[in-house]
Design a protein around this nucleic acid. Structure first.
Lengths: 97, 97
DNA sequence: AAAAGTACTTTGAATTTCAAAGTATAATTA
DNA sequence: TAATTATACTTTGAAATTCAAAGTACTTTT
């Protein structure tokens, strides 16, 4: 096989999704507000990217209340961590020649 | 500033464009056929991604004939190389926490 | 009690992605 | 030599994605 981008996961193509995963592999959890600030995304935009990752079972979404305010908290699943690791390795391989 | 994906260039978000640039920073030139094979892209798909990079002045497109067959050859511009280098550094920084 | 803020969700328009079909010529086979 | 197949792209437009504005449902401040 020749295809050099074969192992690059299209679910992580977009910088916001790449950012979400980067955050979630080093932080056990992150909430909506934290992701929004770290990524500079608008609300709707962030919601659709988290939804895309959730659909792939790469992240887990947990809704609860902190005090009486709603709080949505995200974490990377095992599947997500593994897929992201593979993706990062593929990018590194691609970039060093 | 908090935005951790601030230096990630959206022109290189897509894996095919990332692949094109990776190829063009190590090879002075690559033609349509070579890119197509290395990236596993369809014709129309590759054409639109090269067009996007050309629009940003990140790659240069030269059309000629080899014998009597048309040949389209791509190369990275100085601007493209610089932008890509910055992008790669931003990705590396993002990925190591 | 009204106004402003927080934490999202919904919506749909704009943009992007993609492959099928088209164009034009070259090479092969019958 | 005529027909068929292959090469090297380009054009087209439907489908998918991206995005921010507006909406919902509270909570907090004035």
């Amino acid at each position: 096989m020749k295809n050099i981008i074969h192992n690059i996961n299209k679910a992580f193509d977009h910088r916001i999704r790449l950012g979400i995963m980067s955050i979630l592999v080093v932080n056990e959890f992150a909430d909506f507000k934290m992701l929004k600030e770290l990524l500079g995304a608008t609300d709707g935009n962030l919601a659709s990217h988290t939804k895309a990752l959730e659909k792939e079972d790469y992240i887990l979404v947990e809704k609860s209340f902190i005090g009486r305010k709603p709080n949505t908290r995200y974490s990377a699943t095992k599947k997500g961590r593994e897929a992201f690791k593979k993706h990062v390795e593929a990018i590194e391989k691609l970039l060093k020649q």
